[in-house]
Amino acid sequence: MCTYHTVTTTVDGSAKGPEGSWFHVTDAAVYYDHPVHAMAGHTLNIDLTDPTRGPAARVALELTSTSARELVAAIQEALDAVPAALLQS
């Protein structure tokens, strides 16, 4: 099914995108729906984009639900391990 549920947020960082070039990303969309490439019926999909540069300025991830949760945990663990003095917004 198409879940139609999309969570969007702003981000500030960079991603390596089409043709191997880095670009600044400002937006993220997160949704659980049909993947384009991953061999699964549904995946947790993340689009990191810069809408001002057009639709192709996008880095896309399609992760199984298990691996998405593992990634969330890994991100959390990595952030938790950072000394407070090093954390920058």
Partner: peptide, 15 residues
Amino acid sequence: APNAAPDDAAAKVRA
């Protein structure tokens, strides 16, 4: 998303 790749266009419209 005129002339965009289908997956990029879908992502833009979804967002």
